[in-house]
Amino acid sequence: MTPNGIHCFTCNGEDCAATLPCVDEEDHCIKATVNSDGQMMTMRGCATESFCRGDLSSQSSQSSIAADQSCCKGHLCNSAQTATASRFFQLGILMYAILQTSF
């Protein structure tokens, strides 16, 4: 297991801000939301290209697991979406419109 220089975000419970060094052929980052017996979990980490091409729910041996996965290629590409200046601008416009219609 040799680190390859790529890092991906990983989750420790609900906190998905930690990073994980990828190894060997793991050249993609994965973000998955898994519903197992009514409990939702978010998972992030490193993955191989072949794993990303597959369906996570079909790779699971348990039929009670449903998953939504996405993969990306690049250093730390599986992060949570952060609030950017354009998002704050959009939020400001929306709030202004709501306030204008309220008065």
Rank of each mutant, 00 (worst) to 15 (best):
N35K: 11
Q62N: 15
A85T: 06
R53P: 01
T48C: 06
F89W: 03
S79T: 12
D24H: 06
G74C: 08
T2L: 06
T101M: 08
L56P: 05
C72Y: 10
R44E: 00
S70A: 14
N35A: 10
G54Q: 04
A80Y: 10
C8E: 01
M40S: 13
C22E: 02
A32T: 05
F51S: 12
C71V: 00
R53I: 05
T48N: 03
N35M: 11
D27F: 11
M1E: 07
T42R: 05
C22P: 00
E49R: 11
T19P: 03
C16W: 01
A66Y: 07
Q39H: 14
H28Q: 13
T33I: 11
S57P: 13
I93P: 09
D37I: 04
G5K: 00
F51K: 06
L94I: 14
G45L: 04
I98D: 11
C71T: 01
Q69T: 05
I93R: 14
S60H: 06
I65S: 09
S60F: 12
C72I: 07
S63L: 12
N78R: 04
T19K: 09
G5R: 01
S70G: 10
C52G: 00
S64A: 13
G92D: 08
C77I: 09
N4W: 10
H75S: 05
V23Q: 05
R44G: 01
A47M: 02
A80D: 15
E49Y: 05
T42F: 03
A32Q: 05
A80E: 11
S50K: 15
C22F: 05
G5H: 02
V34P: 01
C22Y: 02
T48G: 03
T101A: 11
K31T: 04
Q62M: 14
S79K: 10
M41F: 08
F89L: 15
T48I: 04
G54C: 07
S60P: 00
A32F: 01
M43A: 11
R53A: 08
C11N: 09
T84F: 11
H28L: 07
Q81C: 09
S79C: 12
S58G: 08
D24M: 07
T19Y: 00
L20I: 00
K31Q: 04
G54A: 09
F88Y: 15
I30Q: 08
S58F: 09
C29L: 05
N4I: 07
R53G: 09
G13S: 04
T101Y: 11
